[in-house]
Computed example of a mutant assay.
Amino acid sequence: MQSTSVPARREVTPLELFFDLVYVFAIGQLSHQLLAHPTWTGAVQTLVLYLAVYAVWAYTTWAVTLVPAEDPRTRRMLLAVMLVGLFMNAAIPRAFGDAGWVFVVTFLLIHLGRTVWLLRVGLDRREQEHWRRVLVWFFVAAPFWLTGAAADGGARLVWWAAAVLVELAGTLSAHPLPGRRLDSRQVTFAGGHLLERGRLFMIIAFGEAVLTTGAALTAAPYEPMTLLTAGVALTGTVALFWLFFSRSEHIVRHYERTEAPYGRGAAASTASWPPSPE
């Protein structure tokens, strides 16, 4: 197999942004889930679903830093994940109801399938070792997901929360296995590309928030309260945009100076700062 090597800086392709639309759709679905269940239990349910969906997006985005989107194999993988992900995200509002199996089966199909795909595309020895360990951690979490899908009510939430915690622990600890460690500074990783993907995704997400506010304003009667709430919503979106992008510039500068781009890229993709080196 041919070894894959990628530069630290690559242009984000239209296909990658097209792929992101399915996960911007997921943000709206998560919002509907929380609005339909405005309780502490509903908030925890939404958090668990968010972490699962975010993991799908982040690991798929990470995969594209290793095998560029210009590669036909990567294009096919992205389109497949996009298609399956659409069904997964559509199931979000009913994931704790009658669509639990739809959510879990599509989630595991993406997570496990994409990782197996990465192990077959010609990564170098160190990267293959890392992704084998990632696959082991995903398999450890899978029984929790499946048991939760077979359970009802609060039991499903407990099992799925345990699955999310297992996967999150693996991500934050760099997927260790007994007696097997890697030095992350020696692993090829296009962290700059991952950072740019995250920034562009947020632009799309903020744009969706503006469109939603505008659509709601169009359909509502023009009364003082309508104008006030629309103004507050738009002001909040602008404030979040400013806060995110002022911080993201700092992260980009830090990445350009760091001696461990792999670890810093992982930090950016999981919003942790910083993870432990492998």
Rank of each mutant, 00 (worst) to 15 (best):
G191S: 13
A216H: 01
I92V: 14
F206M: 11
A63L: 12
G100A: 14
S272D: 14
A8P: 02
P38A: 13
A36Q: 13
I27P: 01
A161H: 04
V64A: 15
W137A: 05
E11Y: 05
R10A: 11
Q2F: 09
A91P: 00
A260G: 04
V134T: 08
V158K: 01
S173V: 14
W117R: 05
A174Y: 07
A52G: 02
Y50C: 12
A268W: 14
T41R: 10
G122M: 14
G192H: 14
A63Y: 12
G263C: 09
Y23R: 05
L168T: 02
A8N: 14
L194T: 04
A155W: 15
Q2K: 11
G28A: 10
W273H: 05
A174D: 09
A155P: 05
V48N: 06
F245L: 11
P7G: 15
A230V: 11
P176V: 08
T147W: 14
R10F: 02
E127V: 06
V53M: 10
V12A: 12
G236T: 09
F138Y: 05
P7S: 15
H193F: 12
E129T: 06
L165E: 04
Y54K: 07
A149C: 04
V6G: 07
E208S: 08
E256F: 08
F96E: 08
E70P: 00
V121G: 04
A8S: 12
A239D: 05
S5M: 15
Y255I: 07
A69K: 03
A80L: 12
A142N: 05
L78P: 01
A63R: 03
Y50D: 05
L172C: 02
A268S: 09
A155G: 04
A43V: 10
S269F: 13
N89Q: 08
F144N: 04
R264V: 13
A190Q: 06
R73L: 14
R197Y: 10
G179A: 08
F244Q: 02
T258A: 09
Y50G: 06
P224A: 12
Y222W: 05
F144Q: 03
V238F: 01
V22G: 00
D183L: 13
L146T: 03
A161Y: 11
L146P: 00
A209T: 00
F201E: 05
P274Q: 10
T106F: 10
L165C: 11
T4D: 13
Q33I: 09
R75F: 06
D183W: 13
A63D: 13
L123K: 02
F107L: 08
T60R: 03
L182C: 08
T74S: 10
T46F: 13
L135A: 06
A215H: 00
A230Y: 00
E256K: 04
R185Y: 07
L146C: 03
L47T: 06
L227R: 00
R185S: 10
H254E: 15
A142K: 06
A26P: 02
V232G: 03
Q186K: 12
L15H: 00
Y23P: 02
R253E: 15
P277H: 10
L119A: 04
W145A: 02
A233N: 01
V158T: 11
V116R: 10
F87Q: 03
G148R: 04
T270P: 00
Q128S: 12
L228C: 02
T212L: 15
A150H: 09
E259T: 10
